[in-house]
Every structure is written in C-alpha cells, then in structure tokens.
Amino acid sequence: MPIDVLLQATTQGLLMGSIYALVALSLTLIFAVGGLLNFAHGDFMVLAMYAAFAVLAAVGVDPYLLAVPLFGLFFLVGTGLFRGLVRPVLSEGLLVGAQLTLGMVFVLQNAMLLIFGGDHLSVPTVLSNRNVAFGTVILPLPLLVASAVAAILSIFLYVLLMRTDFGRQVRAVTQNRDAAALMGIPIVRVQAKAFGLGIGLLGLTGAFLVAQFTLTPSMGLDLTLLALIVMVFGGIGNFLGCLGGGLIIGVIEGLGTLFFGGTVGAMAPYVALVLVLLLRPHGLFGEH
C-alpha cells in the first residue's frame, strides 16, 4: 500500500470525522438536556439539504448562502418542537421519547418522499467539482469547506457549553435538574434553547454538506446511526469525547473503505463500536 494512498484516505477520513463530530455534538446536546434520544437527527439534516435544493431550484440561490437562514429557521422549529411535542413526553421516560422521535423519522422521510420523490438528487454548489491539492493529497473543496465549518462550529459549541452562563446552565440541568431549579434556572427555557440549538446546527450543517451527498429521502437514518456510534464511542454525554470519537470514526471509515472497499468499509465503524463496547463499556473517553 503506497503511503500517499494511506495519507489520502486518512485525511479524507479526518475531514468526514469533523462533520460526524459536529452532528454527534448536537445529538449529545439534545440528549443532555432532557434525556431524549433523537432518532430523527439525521432526517432533520436531510430536510435542510432538500430545503437548500428547493431554494436553489426555485430562485437559484447557492446552498452556502442559505446556511445562516436555515440555522435560524431550524432553531425556531427546534424550540417549537420542544415546547409542543417533546416536553409533554419527557417525564414519561426514554422509550416514549424514542417513540416520538422515531415517529418524526417516518413523518419527515415520507413528507420528503411525497414532495421531492424518491430519485437520487445531486445538488451543485459554486464549489462543486473543484479540488485542492496538498502535495500528493487531493481533496474535494466542498468537503474541505464543510469540515472546516464543522470544526469551527464544534469548537464554538464546546466553548459555549464550557465557558458561558448558558453553557453552565445547560450542564447544571444535565447533572441535577432539581438543583438546577433551586438555582433559579428557567429549566424549560434552557432545554428549549438547547434543543433549538441542536436542530439549528443541523440546518446549518445541511447547507454545507449538501454538495457532499447524493440525496435520497431515506438517508437520514444512516446519519443518525453514525452520530449515535460517535456518541457512544466517545462516552454518552461527554462533549470532548464526541470530538475525538467523530475523528476516529471518520478515519476508521476512510481506511476501512480503502482496505475492504465501499460496502465492507462502511461496516468498519460498527465493528469498531462493538469492540469499544466490549473493552470499554462506558466509551473510549467515558468515565467510571
């Protein structure tokens, strides 16, 4: 195996990994504040991609320009969903919450199927089909941009959670809800904002990722599963673990594809997950 090829696969894996990390971070954020496992996570991102496609088709605005508006829109959708649907079932336990988000998967996937049809779609952006060469490593520009944005957002999210009043309040709600209430923290408002932020980031990421994927309405669940793997890999609820887990999973997927081809390579993250769970049940970076 020539070293260039290894380097190419590893670099591309790291770039995909930073995107996985961001998706897993937003999944963790949603899980942290209310104990809700959002199975519709990937579908919200796919919805953002289709929205970007629709706007491009209708008025010709490049998907990259839609990132910020989609963030705002999805933030509002997220807070609304939290207050209307999620909050009433939160106290009913993990399973009822899982049923709710699985229900959202069906609603979202079928709505997209109904509106956009089941054909595979490629969405061009201004950066499509451009590559950048670093020595022998050649990287698609859209991937480079998407992963740079994901890395910046991950760091931003991490700083927000660890260094600001809002972040401290989110962590307080996560660690002890009653104690958080005794501090005078507006629990529901903090939960709704965190939920909105988690969904909003998917809107933003979707706009940056749209050039990277061939769209089909059913692809969301794969993204959710990868994010779940990263989350479990890094230790559930561990924000720093998500960052590390995302990068590792990206590289494993990249190298797996290189050595074993696309189909078997796509299984590599799952194999890695099983190994980690066997050896370190609390995740690679988990405590206990």
Binding site: A172, Q175, N176, D178, A179, L182, M183, G184
Partner: peptide, 30 residues
Amino acid sequence: AEEAVAAGIVLVPEGRMVFPRMTVLENLLL
C-alpha cells in the same frame, strides 16, 4: 422555583446537591 429564588427564598437542599462534574467556581457562579 424560579419565582421563589427571584423573590429571595433560597434553599440549601438535603444531601447538598452540588453539581458534581463542575468546578467549585462554576457551582458558585450558578
């Protein structure tokens, strides 16, 4: 609780209920 705290009733709960995975300073700031 939010109203009670805003009005000035503050409880130091049984079992202390500090936030375990936060620093002393972060607990105080909260």
